[in-house]
Each structure stands twice: as structure tokens, then as C-alpha cells.
Computed example of a mutant assay.
Amino acid sequence: MSVMPDPHAKIAIPKPKLITRETDPLHIIKTRITTHGRPVNIAGPMVRYSKLPFRQLCRDYNVDIVYSPMILAREYVRNEHARISDLSINDKDVPLIVQVGVNNVADLLKFVEMVAPYCDGVGINCGCPIKEQIREGIGCALIYNSDLLCSMVRAVKNKYGDKLRLETKIRIHDELDQTVELCRNLCDSGVDWITIHGRTRRTRSSQSVNLDAIKYIIDRIADKNVPVIANGDCFKLSDLEKITKYTGASGVMAVRGLLSNPALFAGHDICPWGCIEKFWYWALEFGGLPFQLAQHHLYCMFESMELKRSLLKEMMNLKNYISLIDWFDENFDFKRHGEDGFGEAIEIPYKK
């Protein structure tokens, strides 16, 4: 059963939920190498796509920490409809980091107060390069406004301390020493960990991530003892070790790689068929996922699996869940939850 944030901003809001060692994101980041023999892996925030069914799917395939989509603080704290639609969770959705787009302390503190009972941490988005967000002082704009960003971090940590974890996800500056200075200031302000996307605000995703930049920054803030997560170009499990070994990061955040293959951290180089069946199960079990969004999730996974182009085109021409389920039954050996072999197949089980 989903748990929805209290839609009434003026009603007394529950206290932050109790973080245990098993659900504490910071503890997981610091100890995963000793408990599991590998660095921590994280499913990063994806606009629209990091909804509850997809988060649960990622958890089914060895993801340690999962983020919500970015939520705009100004809308969430003022609009009941935004609160209902932007965040749904359940008791399996742990540890969860709720990412926020925000440009002032007041909205951030109100936002954190409202989501703290339902998550294990909050991440401030300082990496979104969309021009509209930057114009409003959100996303990438914050890496050029260190005073504001650090004041927001201090405000949250002064109020909540270790009862709630706080992360900042940043991009790099053209001049890397600016990023080093920003990270050192964030550490001094109390941030629990920093995620560094190794691209500038103008770097296209088609260009390789700058691992040298991430390594440069990590080396120069090592004395702060604040974990750093590397973000960018993680598409296979082997990338987790390669990136962390080269940069010295405590772990890796994947975004595009997980969208096309939610099982990548379980060692699958190509999305397995079982992932499709599990996605269907969670999407229908939890509900609330718009049809076109579910359709696009399936499209991304099928592209990774190199589904026949004619079938991919057919699927994208469908208009509702009923016709999509019928299409699956017509073309594949499509198992439901509870049936023998559900969620286990690797290859596409074509019927024709």
C-alpha cells in the first residue's frame, strides 16, 4: 500500500522517520565495500521516470540507494495536487533519497519538513542544465552561487543533524578549482556526501564523462572525509569498478544506464526479459503510472534487448494498458507474478 505525504501543509507533520544502520544511506556508502566487497551503487534521479514502480524494479536488481525524480519545492509546498502526484512510497522503498529543485532556504526547510517522515535523505539538485531551471536559480545555477547553496545545506543540517541525510548533486565548472572550492565549502557546511556529475553545464551527454575531473576534485577534498559519488557513463557492472578505481569515488550513480537496463548492477550487460515481467508486476501492483510513461520505460528496455524493430513500432502505436497487455500475450510467453519462471528469463521469449 502506498503512503502519501500529508497534503495539508498547515497540519502538524510527523517527525523524521528513524534511520537505522540498515537504512542509513551514509552508513551504506561508507561500508558497502566491506559488507558486499564492492563500492556502493545508486539509481540516480530521472525526471518523471524514477517513480515508485521503477524504483522497486531497480531494488530487485541489487541497487543500494534509489532517488526520486526531482521535485520542485515551490510547487510541492504550495500545491496539494503536486504533493499527491510527485511522491508516493511504501514500506519497501528504502533507502530513498528525495531530490529537490530549490532556490531559497525557506522553501527548502518547508519541503524537508514535509518529506522527512517518508524518506532517508534529501538531495539538492545542483546539476540540472535546463535553461528554464537555471533562470530560476535552480539546478546548475547553484554551483555558481556557493553562498546560497551552502546556506541551504547549513539550514537543514542545523535543524535535523544526523536524523536526516543531505546530499548535493553537482556538475563541474570549466575551472576545476572552482568546483574544489565549492566542495570544500559544502563539506564545511555539513553535507553528508557529494555526487559529482563529470560534465559542465554545457557538456552534452554524447561526450564522455570527465573522470580526470572527478579524480582531481576527490584528491583535493580527501581531508574532509566526506564521501563522493561519481556520476556519468555507467552502463555496465564493470563500469562501477572501473570508475571508482580510477577516481577514488566511494561509489557510482547510474541514470541513463539503468533506464535502458535496470539490471545492470546485477551483472546483466543487456536488459533481461525477467526485468520486463517484473516491471509490469510493479507497475500494476502500485498503480498510478501514466500509460505513456510505462510505454516509454518498456521502449527503453526493449531497445537494450534489440527487440525486432517491427514489434517495437507496433508497441509504440498502442494507446492503453489493455491493448498493451494483449500485445504482450500475442507476441511473447509473458508470465505473471506467481507463475513458474516469472522474472527469471534472460532472452526474449517470442511466440512467433
Rank of each mutant, 00 (worst) to 15 (best):
C128R: 01
S88G: 06
E136A: 13
I130L: 14
V112C: 02
S85Q: 12
A106W: 10
C119P: 05
K131M: 10
C126T: 07
N104M: 06
G139L: 09
Q133L: 14
G121I: 10
V98W: 07
L142K: 04
V94L: 09
N90H: 05
I89G: 03
A106G: 10
G127L: 11
L142T: 13
E113K: 12
V94I: 06
I138Y: 03
L96F: 03
E136P: 13
G139I: 04
N104T: 01
Y144G: 05
V112S: 00
S88K: 07
N145S: 12
N145L: 10
A106I: 07
G127E: 14
I134F: 14
R135L: 11
V122S: 01
G127N: 11
M114D: 10
L109E: 05
P129R: 10
K110L: 14
C128A: 07
C128I: 08
C128E: 14
A116D: 08
A106D: 08
I138L: 09
F111V: 01
I89F: 06
Q133R: 13
G121Y: 06
L142W: 13
A141F: 09
D107A: 02
I89E: 01
Q133Y: 13
F111A: 00
D120V: 00
D91I: 04
I89M: 08
K131H: 15
C126F: 09
C119Y: 05
N103E: 08
N145M: 11
V100Y: 05
I124G: 00
C140A: 15
L87T: 03
C140G: 15
S85I: 04
V105R: 06
E132Y: 14
S88C: 08
I138M: 08
R135P: 00
L142N: 11
A116Q: 07
P129L: 11
Q99R: 06
L108R: 00
Y118C: 06
C140V: 04
N90Q: 04
G127I: 10
G101D: 09
S88R: 08
V98A: 02
G127D: 14
E136N: 15
G101L: 08
E132G: 13
L108Q: 01
E113F: 04
N103R: 14
D93C: 02
L142C: 12
K110W: 09
K110I: 14
V115G: 07
R135V: 03
D91E: 10
D107K: 00
I124P: 11
Q133A: 14
G137S: 08
K131P: 04
V100I: 04
S88H: 07
I97T: 01
M114H: 04
Y118Q: 06
N125Y: 03
